[in-house]
Design a protein around this nucleic acid. Structure first.
Lengths: 300, 300
DNA sequence: CGCTCTGATACCCCGCGGGTATCGCGCCGT
DNA sequence: ACGGCGCGATACCCGCGGGGTATCAGAGCG
């Protein structure tokens, strides 16, 4: 018997267009570190096999992914593409594993569990109402709230840690997800209560963005703070305290009034873009419990 | 040296949530065939290693994916989930490989190549104008037209065979893609020229959907025809001929007038939903040549 | 000019992916 | 009832390749 008839189409990809998740993880590590040694360490392996794996990947794809120069490596055009597409692919793979496990874990008597990613503290009131209304539904699943760091709800949706998320445009992107808009709100400047501007009926973005006595705080991104003036912060509590101490100012959606201190003042901004809270989920999801949650959310 | 410090977050997934593309391909084959022997044959391997691979996958996920009963297998809840999520993941992986290769192939002197999937024969005029306008752009890439079968443009976008596609709502779903609407058109009934209804100024869907003398044709889906009356067809030429012979009727967007025969008659439908042609692309794409193509398309 | 830091090469080994042979078992037929 | 059959699981073996250690090679740099 020779090599099959092979009229199948989807198994066609004659090992040329096939890449393993392991290879992609290796490549991503190198592409991010731009250093084989550190990448190998991060992957918990030795450097030589990593070098070899990347070489094999390049040979299989027939493409140069990295240029090895003195002092580290750089990405080629193809490497840049694989860095993005590969990230999507390994996220999709781990999402598949996580969601399959979650679906199976529900079989042992307990109900389906739905994981909802929300940015800690945001949309608190909306969330409370949503959970209350959903719990009253007939086929309601158990909803686990997954607090997410700054703007990483999309990532959680992509890699399967969450089944749905509350996102806020224009801060988060809805690209790649299905979504429904829930509420729209204006934005406010959160000022120290004793600041001169705190008594104003309203302000503009320009008026609060360049105050010499109140430099904007710098949020940590991936553990590092961007350079510039202003205090470096990592969570909302730090920010709230710094505002109360009269050291900085912040711009937030209206619903942030829920967590304001007495030493804070909220002044509406007239020209800030409106913030829309959406519920979003993977475009291809077929979880019926999720559909029910979305339906409940849009009826609020 | 013990098991590293492991402060890294994204490499955290302690081999529990990690799945290889190979395993997913194996599982998908079984999930589709519902038969280990046939699945193994399709994969070009023997049955025992396939069984073992699935067992290992189930053990690693800690979840039962298939129930083995007499006469074949059935999917569990978790299996159903993995069937969908796994398809997405392997598509994403092969897309990564294909797009990386394409990006690298452009480095050898030739320009970037952009692959645009279009349903053969549809939007012919729009496509001609788009290609003409784009070719005049400064940083225009070479655009390869990839003719796609019935409604498989989405699949091509997902698995990396195409970088962009022309989709038609409500026939195709835009879920998971970024898109821009290009043109909206009404629909027409394509009738045999000598049919009594052919002289009417307009018709309704109800009037043409249940004609006893003109049963609706049955399109092949994945190689098999749905049951029912009416002729079985696999491509548009067959349909055109059958209409010309007075054996069936079809509903098409206005632009289908481009390929009508003299023995055909086109009658506008008053209550058919409008067809919108979109240009769509993977939500995360960062190809600048693609951005230019989209910009050109929206300006038409 | 040697030291250092980088990625590449050389070489080895064992684990695992894949093969063949066979089993266990439920379903048929007569 | 019993033997044949169809199906997935098990047992066992083998060879490749992924991973390890030791070392090389070249480019900066003091």
């Amino acid at each position: 018997m020779d090599h099959q008839d092979r009229q199948d189409s989807q198994d066609r990809q004659d090992r040329q267009d096939t890449v393993e998740v392991r290879e992609l993880r290796y490549f991503l590590a190198v592409a991010e570190e731009l250093h084989f040694g550190r990448a190998a360490e991060r992957l918990g392996m030795a450097q030589p096999p990593l070098s070899r794996a990347i070489q094999q990947l390049e040979r299989r794809l027939g493409v140069l992914l990295l240029v090895r120069n003195r002092r580290g490596v750089a990405l080629t055009e193809a490497g840049e593409v694989l860095r993005h597409e590969g990230r999507v692919a390994v996220d999709a793979a781990t999402a598949a594993a996580r969601r399959a496990r979650r679906a199976g874990a529900g079989n042992d008597g307990s109900r389906t569990r739905l994981v909802l990613a929300v940015k800690a503290g945001d949309s608190h009131d909306l969330l409370r109402r949503l959970l209350g209304a959903y719990a009253a539904e007939a086929d309601a699943a158990e909803v686990e709230i997954l607090p997410s760091g700054t703007c990483e709800q999309g990532e959680m949706l992509r890699d399967g840690r969450a089944d749905a998320a509350l996102l806020h445009t224009p801060f988060n992107s809805l690209a790649g997800f299905d979504s429904e808009a829930l509420v729209t709100e204006g934005q406010i400047a959160v000022l120290p209560a004793r600041h001169p501007l705190a008594t104003r009926p309203h302000l503009t973005l320009a008026e609060v963005s360049d105050l010499p006595d109140l430099p904007l705080a710098r949020w940590a991104r991936d553990g590092v703070h961007p350079p510039g003036p202003g205090p470096a912060i990592t969570d909302q509590t730090q920010l709230a305290q710094l505002i109360a101490l009269g050291r900085t100012v912040a711009v937030y959606p209206d619903s942030a009034r829920a967590w304001l201190w007495t030493e804070h003042a909220a002044v509406p901004l007239t020209d800030a873009p409106p913030v829309v809270t959406h519920i979003a989920w993977p475009a291809h999801s077929r979880l019926l419990a999720l559909a029910a949650l979305v339906r409940t959310a849009t009826r609020l």
